[in-house]
């Protein structure tokens, strides 16, 4: 399985709300592997990757948050100038649109890991295989410390 389940959480744009989310996660021993915060004028969406997304979703819902699971891809890109451009060029050629993207904090052996949400998941997976772009699975995520 190449797809990852990302958790998205609705938060109001006011002091302390992001803290509330991550505190709930911390108290339940959920390790955030990658996180991003998207904002509009009065609300934001916290998106993150963890080991057991279904559990994290359940915990957040139980604590009164509005959360959902979204399928995204984690791709490993060699950590050298120009390599992201190369990947994006392959996507462009396959007419794949990236809706949003954010990075992993941890590095694995000279690779940077990017989380991407794309317009067409199937097409992107095909494109990655054709162009030798490495996609990480949920079990690969576990091994990233």
């Amino acid at each position: 399985m190449k797809r990852l389940n990302q958790i998205s959480v609705f938060v109001e744009n006011k002091p302390g709300r992001l803290l509330d989310v991550v505190e709930v996660l911390g108290n339940n021993n959920i390790d955030i592997k990658a996180i991003s915060l998207a904002d509009s004028s009065d609300f934001g969406i916290v998106r993150f990757i963890c080991e057991d997304p279904k559990f994290a979703h359940e915990i957040l819902t139980k604590n009164g948050f509005t959360a959902s699971l979204t399928e995204v891809l984690a791709i490993a890109i060699s950590d050298r100038p120009g390599s992201l451009a190369k990947v994006l060029k392959s996507f462009k050629e396959s007419n794949i649109n990236i809706e949003y993207m954010y990075g992993f904090s941890a590095k694995i052996k000279d690779y940077a890991v990017m989380i991407i949400k794309v317009s067409d998941l199937e097409e992107t997976i095909k494109c990655c295989i054709a162009n030798n772009i490495q996609i990480l699975s949920q079990s690969d995520i576990k091994s990233i410390v």
Binding site: F10, S40, F43, I45, R47, T61, T66, A67, K117
Partner: peptide, 15 residues
């Protein structure tokens, strides 16, 4: 209030 029935991961949908 936004509950799970209308929540979307995409900001443009919420907007």
């Amino acid at each position: 209030e936004v509950d799970s029935k209308v929540f979307s991961d995409e900001i443009k949908r919420l907007q």
